[in-house]
Write a protein that binds this DNA or RNA. Structure first.
Length: 921
RNA sequence: GGGCGGUUAGCUCAGUUGGUUAGAGCGCCUGCCUUACAAGCAGGAGGUCGCAGGUUCGAGUCCUGCACUGCCCACCA
């Protein structure tokens, strides 16, 4: 028998054992079904963590939510595919390996491109699996047989295919533009990879002498060092201050170069001096102005943001040193006329924090507007839904203001751009496979473009490339569009938007297997090109002080450490219970500790159950067997003989309903909390306590009655385990196997059916009656506490109930009352007991504890005073409302009815309370 | 410069579409080692729902303004 469980729940060994079991048994592997499959389909793509990643709380929240939804679907009979993988993460991984090389005193250029890439692969083979191993510890029920890596050969081929197609469609172009350049990473980065940070800075005013006059024109700039590359000064044509200078030239200080004064809207008369220096090679606005006016582009910096030969005497200096020197020289020569405090939005590299340099360079771009058009439509017309809904607007705003996307990176690690340059004729050959010779001149000296693609280029394709694209596969018919995407807000633009653009473009015309589409509930959707039908954006996990976690702040909470201390189930439960849609989570260890206690509670309830089973009927199993688990509703094999049976059965079905509805709308916290309250507050605190006498046949309850009680307990428990399983997969799996005495009908509770409510098992009368009994018991306990009755002392009570039904209810269940309130004898009074000093009353009954000690009259009076005030206030409110004809006319009838009922109760309560208050003097 | 959120018990947070008495966990106070669980049980105290208006029969919930606070986006030097 496995029933001799340890007294305290120890999650560690149990969790690792089941995690391994699930993988070994391939429980979550889903072979692509052939045509004819009729089950509804649920597909979810795991947002691929970086191979270099270490599991953090964000991952854990994300994966917990996904796993809950995935397990829930699987248990409801969906053909459920959760596709895992990792991202090659260009910059991050390259940095990682470069750091490793640095510790050996080497640089990547020492190795050369090929050897370096081989080195990265080696690194990946050694350490790349770490984050997925950590996922396994979380219990993520993914299909490991389909694990992908974004640099896998098949995915790389798909990337080249996409590049070539986009190029052929004119949606990819190459050109020399200003891009965001990270001097430390040595590569271009996209707009999204630049984080703006407001920092205090200076606005400098520099005067340039106007050639042929004694005048100066004063420009304002935050970046004086770029003046070395100035090729014009712009003023606004309408600005009267400068109209006499139109067409004149200025002599650029320090460089002694003559540059024109141009008129352009770039200059805003309201800002600074109204005149602006124009540096086409170092500012995107100036670049545009330069094109408009045919200005030369003078690049004064190199790839490390050091000044180059174009910077004359400043060559070799870093941009920061150059700024100081330039300012110093301007000051000395009398050109610097003002320095004003000014807040600058400084752009920093998302990856390394280095200040980004707008740099003129040749890059590859995707023309985004045509792709964005359909991506906007798909969301606007509801082909893709985004929840919480406010993110829909954020998405649309962003998409409507999107710029072209710079996709080339000057890195070595990544998908190399499939373009070859002919050394002979300079032709560019864009091809899926390495060409043997130049298509123009036939030359064989071809060199592949040295750039690689932005990592998000390949991850944006994953919804279809992981399903075999560009081939047309059965997997796509079944699993595309994927059903849901659960992800963090921060990658809404990086990833989600790009997947939508690519999906809508490349899967245009795709159709999901109509039968499966219908079965899965998407019959009303027209567009099967979308990468997913739904998006759910989850919150950010912050630390207990609501601070964003960051390494520099040192406030990062390591989920693995939390798991170590409290268990995976407790940690998962915490994240679920705190995840109200739309609000960030302040992670709190005390909450996790509370849920560890919850796991322990479940464990001990199981121990109790097993002890009872072993005593009453060893070998008793739940009524459900095998295939039945997929079709039944409510609790099987449950025989409601007593009030508490009818009550708990009804409650269980109510909870099942509630939880299913909550999960359907991503209300994880409501689902988790409802299960918690049910299991602890109702099942353990009341139900188990109530049935204890029936479980002990030696108490005279009878063997058959004990057998029924035991059966109910085990069947209910089994159902509760299934209900809880998506949130706490480990402990439920462990106990579920034990419930079936290690011979479960299925390999895992994860494959059993998720509880659905059974209408026939609802029993509102039982719920009402039970509430009255609970009320009575709590009142007696309360009185006992007030009278300071010894815990063990059994006392007689008197009860008055005006309604015969209530009296008979109490009579019938007096055994329960006696046990749970430690009552010796119940006698029924003929008249109200409300006046008695030591009595308690409700609208339905009065109860008095017969005991020699008297209550504290003063305290009782205070309590009553408060209560009276409350009742009177509520009465007044009710009377006001019920006396209002408009209210009676407009309010829904159930509200009016409810208030009338409440009013009747209050009348009784008020009367009783008043008379007692008088009695106390 | 735009946009979005938050403000409810000592602390951290819930509070579906407005509807009867605003909840939980932790913490606090009192009493219990009652053979499932002291990681537990029983009882209790604690809130003018940020401020000011408005809509409504009815507002924690909807609207406006204000205050404080957080986040995202942004090529005005």
């Amino acid at each position: 028998m496995p029933h001799d469980l340890p007294k305290a729940y120890e999650p560690g060994a149990i969790e690792t054992r089941w995690a391994e079991y699930w993988i070994k048994e391939k429980l979550f592997s889903v072979p692509t079904p052939p045509p004819g499959e009729t089950r509804p389909v649920f597909t979810l793509l795991l947002p691929p963590p970086n191979v270099t990643g270490r599991l953090h709380m964000g991952h854990m929240l994300n994966q917990t939510q996904m796993d809950i939804i995935v397990r829930w679907h699987r248990m409801r009979g969906f053909l459920t595919l959760w596709l895992p993988g990792t991202d090659h993460a260009g910059i991050a991984t390259q940095m990682m390996v470069e750091r490793q090389l640095a510790s050996e005193g080497k640089k990547r250029r020492d190795l050369g491109r090929e050897a370096f890439i081989e080195r990265v692969w080696e690194w990946k083979r050694h350490y790349g699996g770490a984050i997925l191993d950590q996922m396994k510890r979380l219990g993520a029920s993914v299909d490991w047989d389909r694990e992908y890596f974004t640099m896998d050969e098949n995915l790389s081929r798909a990337v080249r295919e996409v590049f070539v197609r986009l190029y052929e469609e004119g949606l990819i172009y190459r050109g020399k533009y200003i891009v965001n350049w990270c001097p430390r990473c040595g590569t271009a980065i996209s707009d999204l990879e630049v984080k703006h940070e407001e920092v205090p800075g200076k606005l400098y005013e520099i005067r340039y002498p106007v050639v042929g006059t004694n005048e100066f024109i004063t420009v304002a700039t935050t970046r004086p060092e770029t003046m070395l590359g100035d090729t014009a000064v712009a003023v606004n044509a309408k600005d009267e201050r400068y109209q006499h200078l139109h067409g004149k030239k200025v002599l650029l200080p320090l460089m002694n170069r003559e540059i024109p004064i141009i008129t352009d809207d770039l200059a805003n008369p309201e800002f600074g001096t109204g005149a602006v220096k124009v540096t086409p090679a170092h500012d995107p606005n100036d670049f545009e102005a330069g094109l408009r006016h045919n200005l030369p582009q003078i690049d004064v910096m190199d790839e490390h943001a050091h000044m180059n030969e174009n910077a004359g005497p400043y060559a070799g200096l870093s941009r920061h040193a150059a700024r100081e020197r330039v300012l110093e020289d301007l000051r000395k020569q009398g050109f610097l006329v003002a320095e004003k405090d000014y807040t600058i939005a400084l752009g920093k590299c998302d990856r390394c924090g280095t200040v980004v340099e707008p740099r003129l360079s040749t890059q590859w771009f995707i023309k985004i507007a045509p792709l964005a058009k359909r991506a906007i439509e798909a969301v606007e017309n509801g082909e893709i839904t985004i929840a919480p809904e406010n993110y829909k607007q954020i998405y649309l705003n962003w998409m409507n203001n999107i710029h072209d996307w710079c996709i080339s990176r000057q890195l070595w690690w990544g998908h190399r751009i499939p373009v070859w340059h002919c050394a002979g004729c300079q032709a560019m050959i864009v091809a899926r496979e390495t060409p043997a010779q130049c298509t123009k001149c036939g030359g064989t000296k071809l060199e592949q473009d040295t750039d690689v693609l932005d990592t998000w280029f390949s991850s944006g394709l994953l919804p279809f490339t992981t399903l075999g694209w560009p081939e047309k596969t059965r997997a796509q018919e079944v699993f595309y569009p994927t059903t849901l995407l659960i992800t963090a807000y921060e990658i809404l633009f990086f990833w989600v938007a790009r997947m939508i653009m690519f999906g809508c473009h490349f899967m245009q015309g795709h159709q999901q297997d109509p039968q499966l589409k219908q079965a899965s509930g998407w019959g009303d959707k027209k567009d099967d090109s979308v990468p997913f039908r739904q998006v759910y954006i989850h919150a950010l996990v912050r630390d207990a002080e609501r601070q964003k976690m960051s390494k520099t702040k040192g406030n990062v909470i390591d989920p693995l450490e939390i798991i170590q201390r409290f268990g995976t189930d407790a940690t998962r439960f915490t994240l679920a219970a705190m995840a109200a849609p739309g609000t960030d989570i302040a992670f709190s260890e005390s909450r996790t500790d509370g849920y560890r206690a919850f796991a322990n509670k479940i464990w001990n309830a199981a121990r109790f159950m097993f002890m009872s089973v072993d005593r009453v009927e060893a070998g008793l199993r739940p009524a459900l067997a095998g295939s039945e688990t997929q079709s039944h509703t409510g609790v099987a094999g449950f025989q409601p003989v007593a009030l508490e049976d009818r009550w708990i059965l009804s409650r269980f079905n109510g909870v099942a309903n509630y939880v299913n509805e909550a999960l359907a709308t991503y209300r994880f916290h409501e689902a988790a909390n409802r299960i918690y309250d049910f299991f602890w507050g109702e099942f353990c605190d009341w139900y188990i306590e109530l049935i204890k006498p029936r479980l002990a046949p030696e108490n005279g309850a009878g063997k058959e009655s004990a057998r029924i009680a035991c059966g109910n307990l085990i069947n209910l428990f089994e159902a509760a385990l299934r209900l809880l399983h998506p949130v706490m997969p480990f402990i439920t799996e462990e106990i579920w196997h034990a419930v079936y005495d290690e011979h479960p009908p299925l390999k895992s509770v994860a494959l059993a059916a998720y509880p659905q409510a059974n209408e026939k098992q609802f029993d509102l009368a039982a719920e009402t009656e039970m509430a009255i009994l609970q009320d009575l018991i709590v009142n007696v306990r309360n009185l006992r506490a007030e009278l300071k009755v010894e815990q063990k002392q059994r006392v007689p009570i008197q009860v008055f109930a005006a309604e015969p039904a209530i009296r008979s209810l109490i009579e019938k269940n007096q055994g329960s009352v006696k046990r749970l309130a430690n009552v010796e004898e119940i006698t029924f009074a003929a008249n109200t007991l409300a006046k008695l000093a030591g009595a308690r009353h409700t609208a339905r009954f009065d109860v008095h504890v017969v005991y020699e000690r008297k209550i504290d009259v003063g305290a009782e009076r205070e309590r009553l005073k408060k209560e009276l005030a409350r009742i009177e206030k509520e009465m007044a409110n009710l009377q006001r409302q019920l006396g209002n004809e408009q209210f009676l006319a407009k309010a829904p009838s159930h509200v009016v009815e409810g208030m009338r009922k409440r009013q009747q109760e209050l009348v009784v309560l008020l009367q009783k309370t008043q008379s007692k208050f008088k009695e106390l003097g």
